[in-house]
Design a protein around this nucleic acid. Structure first.
Lengths: 170, 170
DNA sequence: TGACGTCCGTTTCACTTGAAACGATATTGG
DNA sequence: CCAATATCGTTTCAAGTGAAACGGACGTCA
């Protein structure tokens, strides 16, 4: 697919006149990232959502609690990059299913003290290998060096976009 | 922010017990892609949405029509990786704003023949430099080789996830 | 102490989303 | 030719989303 622009001007494809130069949505990095990422998220969700009854936000909360419990809702927001409303709803669902325990912080009644229940830990430990297998399949055709470059690129893209949002950052 | 895991085990951070091994959501590729991509999409939308009154789906339709008009709704679906309902709504908004012309296909009345109006082309050509500037800023700290590796990785990730969805692909 | 401002998590509200139902057109097969 | 099926784009519907309003808990400062 793809195909460089203006190379094969078939019947239906009217080549762009000018002005817009050679812009091609298919080569535009934000677009490529978005399409690939959404397809990956859907593919991963297919593997665990039906089997474990988890949405993507629920899995993310489960994942951070699996590694860093106990956490408050706010700490989950920071670690998952989800907004607080989303976290609140995911936590409510998970506690309703008995996968997450919630208690009040002993020293600050505003804070929740969230952690995995035994069943929640069991679910977490069941999903982790699925996640790792998916990642392995996705990156099977990437060399170790390519994978390292990819990680570095993502990190730099992340810091670059952070700078765009807050131009007066240090 | 960020901060490597387990390096600064401050008061609150209880290290994970075991079982789940060293799984860390922050290192999980689908998660990293998702967070970075969403931040980039939002940053880009900030630059054109207020100024031109375009949502992300509208911009995408405009972009493919800018390069490949005339297209049917279905062809826009394929080129933008959006589902047909989303495309339908974006097209309706764009025609309502006078940025897109719609006509019936002369040989198949089911198909639309969508193209940019003169105003639509003007908007497209005004947004393209913004898109290119954003991409340049994002990739400013990436070497040409890193950018090439990134593109290759995205392509391979895309084909890998396609294989996951349809394991009997060729 | 008490009034004010802040922080935390929940809830409300308007909007967006994708799946499915739908009407309209085109194609296929009897 | 007509019936059955498929395709295209729209609309409906239930679920999910972020922004903002909200109430409760905490900190501050007079």
């Amino acid at each position: 697919m793809a195909g460089r622009r203006q190379s094969d001007a078939t019947e239906l494809e009217a080549a762009q006149p000018a002005g817009a130069g050679g812009f091609s949505l298919g080569d535009f990095l934000p677009y490529r990232l978005s399409v690939t990422t959404n397809r990956i998220s859907r593919a991963f969700a297919e593997r665990y959502s039906a089997r474990f009854g988890l949405s993507i936000p629920e899995w993310r909360v489960l994942a951070v609690l699996g590694s860093f419990a106990p956490l408050s809702s706010n700490e989950i927001c920071e670690r998952t990059a989800m907004d607080k409303a989303k976290v609140s709803r995911a936590v409510a669902l998970l506690t309703g299913k008995g996968l997450v325990d919630r208690a009040a912080h002993p020293e600050d009644q505003r804070l929740l003290r969230l952690s995995l229940s035994p069943r929640g830990r069991g679910t977490f430990e069941a999903v982790v290998p699925i996640a790792e297998e998916l990642e392995a399949e996705l990156t099977a055709e990437l060399s170790a060096e390519e994978r390292a470059v990819l990680d570095r690129c993502l990190e730099r893209l992340g810091s670059a976009v952070g700078r765009l949002a807050r131009p007066d950052e240090r």
